[in-house]
Nucleic acid binder design. Sequence first.
DNA 1: CGAAAATTTGACATGACTCAACTGGAGTGG
DNA 2: CCACTCCAGTTGAGTCATGTCAAATTTTCG
Lengths: 196, 196
Amino acid sequence: MSDLLIRNLNRFVTLTSEENDTVLSLFRPRNFRRHQFIQQEGEVARYETFLLSGLTRTYEIDEKGAEHIVLFGTEDWWVGDLYSFLTGLPSTYAIDCLEDTQTMQVSKDDLEELYVRVPKLERHFRIMIQKAYITSTRRITSSLRKSAAERYMDFIRTYPSLEQRIPNHQIASFLGITPQSLSRIRAKGNTRKTGK
Amino acid sequence: MSDLLIRNLNRFVTLTSEENDTVLSLFRPRNFRRHQFIQQEGEVARYETFLLSGLTRTYEIDEKGAEHIVLFGTEDWWVGDLYSFLTGLPSTYAIDCLEDTQTMQVSKDDLEELYVRVPKLERHFRIMIQKAYITSTRRITSSLRKSAAERYMDFIRTYPSLEQRIPNHQIASFLGITPQSLSRIRAKGNTRKTGK
DNA sequence: CGAAAATTTGACATGACTCAACTGGAGTGG
DNA sequence: CCACTCCAGTTGAGTCATGTCAAATTTTCG
């Protein structure tokens, strides 16, 4: 199962089998059930979490108590609050599971040790973050210029598999719109009859 | 002047003076005048560009021909289209100068060589991109949840010095609103008299 | 100086929000 | 198995923020 982690880390660099073992010795498996928190708001992010299976949501809570989903995560993804992880300051994000979820976690100290023992991983994570950064900048453009309907279409095109696993009101939260608006957008899209 | 580049690269790691010299041997100074393009839309991004002075804008042009500013850059910032730079595909971004601008540029090959000759720089750029990524994710949240007025206030709070150097319609483009809307937002904010 | 660009203002249109009510399905306990 | 509740989803009516189109005014800079 932790193969997935090894494959992930060997995507941009090639590790020897000893290096792979070093990786495995520093990551710890941890499983979560549906509704369980991987990380609570206000707490320092002590781990970066690699997802082996399942589904998570990372979200913020605003002054009015409303949840705003920032990211869904599923197998072969990393989740965590990099800011809190790096600075040691309390996180403003919460992460919980929409499905039972298997993970491998690494602490900050262990990750630093890993960078020392397997310097190639600096490269891996640089490239990985570069890609995440590119995706992120594109999402800014899209969130600033596109209508809610376009953003929804983009979402189901980009994550067709997730769209079926995630309730609509959560998708609405991710898109930054109300569930009502999403419902109307969907109603408009489905011009075809219900097949009755 | 290129001190600024050396200081930038020594922010998260410490380079020896030979390593600094290696850096300098692989970067090339290049100066641009106001209105000149650092990079044109449709062309492959062959360089990453470090800004020593001046002011740039990175923007996209949509189907209707409207410009959308993605990023302003000024001294001690990096600009370029990482996606195009990494993939070799034509860039969808254009970068031009709002002021005369001095830069240091590095080509893809030279940067790869630099990573080989000064591996510490993998770490530097990993950390740098991590920070950029964090900023970027926060901007997504803000663009999805905040009103235009709030985003404008955030902008002038975050970049007080830029706000004075950049024409309003460019700020509007960056915020994803029309110049008319920005004008109204400003009018509302300035309840105090003009001091006449 | 004079043309072009930037900014402001007004009138109106529209997309998305809020509040509220209703529907339908999933689980629960009697 | 039914009555009940809870929650997601839908729908309607009214409101508000922002966009669009147009014109007047001011500023910039070539």
